[in-house]
Simulated scan of single mutants.
Amino acid sequence: MHETDDLIIRPARPEDEKELAVLNRTTWTPLADVGPRPAEDAGVFDERHLPDQFRLALLDGRIVGYIRIAPPTPLASNQHVRQIQGLAVDASVRGRGIGVALIEEACRAARGQGARKLTLRVLGHNAPARALYGRCGFVVEGVLAEEFLIDGAYVDDVWMARPLTD
């Protein structure tokens, strides 16, 4: 668990799903997401998206952000890598360092799972997220040019990583 001021970061629990699903829907944007907006009745947890993969940011008992980390593949040969597979912060609390706190918690959790490297994929047109990741020590490792067609425009898929070894 991580606390700064009134911010609490903790692992998700099954009973968090309903509130987390609302946050997931309200933070959806084509700037950051390649899939369609989640349906009103869409859940978050399933056999591939487990509660223990999520870290939640809470202010005054309300979920205001989350980060999800998971192995990028089921292969034994890259189990030393974890990947950020989702990061969201409620618009009403942006600019308070919650994104940075979630990323640092993800790094700590990944190290605790034996990871040596944390990776992520971010859309090329998502300048705010790319800047956030850069401030947190992530560097671009590759770019898949025009990988997605979003709202009639081709968008790059930018692969970034941060070593977790000191």
Rank of each mutant, 00 (worst) to 15 (best):
G114L: 08
G137Y: 01
S77Q: 14
E3P: 00
A101H: 01
D46E: 02
A76Q: 13
S77K: 14
A88N: 06
L118E: 08
F138Q: 02
R37V: 15
C107F: 07
K18S: 11
A153S: 12
E141T: 06
K117L: 13
G65C: 06
A161D: 00
V139H: 12
L102A: 05
L23M: 03
I63E: 04
A109V: 14
R135P: 05
G124I: 04
I103T: 07
A110L: 02
G95R: 01
G114N: 14
D157K: 03
A115R: 03
M1V: 08
F148S: 01
M160I: 09
V143H: 09
G95S: 10
A76S: 09
R96I: 04
G95M: 10
V100Q: 13
G65V: 04
L59P: 07
R13K: 12
A161N: 01
Y66M: 05
D156R: 11
R116Y: 12
A12I: 03
Q79T: 09
A32I: 02
R130V: 08
A153V: 10
C107S: 13
F54Y: 15
T4M: 11
P74G: 12
D166H: 07
L144Y: 12
T165C: 07
V158R: 00
G43P: 03
E141D: 09
L149P: 01
D90F: 02
N78M: 11
A109G: 08
L123S: 03
V139D: 08
L164M: 01
V93T: 11
I63R: 00
P72T: 03
R68T: 01
D156I: 02
A70V: 14
I8N: 04
L132Q: 07
I84K: 05
T119E: 11
